[in-house]
């Protein structure tokens, strides 16, 4: 899976979780929780669960805690799905 495929998949999960329209202008690798109003600590949990379900991966809490931006999540999914 390419980096772009993963990013698009994450955009889809964000659209479902935050119930907002998400396109490449709204979410890039540099997007953080501060950029999206609906992205709070509770919806963050739901986002992680949705991404885990979508890509059939499981993150540890340590990995989740290290995430700063969407690009980190893309890289993490990439590493998990490549293995």
């Amino acid at each position: 899976m390419s980096r772009d495929d993963i990013l698009n998949g994450i955009r889809g999960a964000m659209a479902d979780v935050f119930d907002i329209d998400v396109d490449e202008n709204i979410v890039t690798g540099d997007t953080t929780a501060d950029d999206i109003e609906e992205w709070d600590s509770l919806s963050h949990i739901r986002l992680i669960v949705a991404v885990e379900r979508k890509f059939k991966v499981k993150f540890t809490n340590k990995e989740i805690e290290s995430l700063k931006r969407v690009g980190d999540l893309v890289a993490l999914v990439g590493a998990k799905t490549a293995a």
Binding site: D16, V17, D19, R46, V49, A50, R53
Partner: peptide, 11 residues
Amino acid sequence: LDENQLASLAR
């Protein structure tokens, strides 16, 4: 429905 779909119906 999954929990996100349920949340949007909850709203």
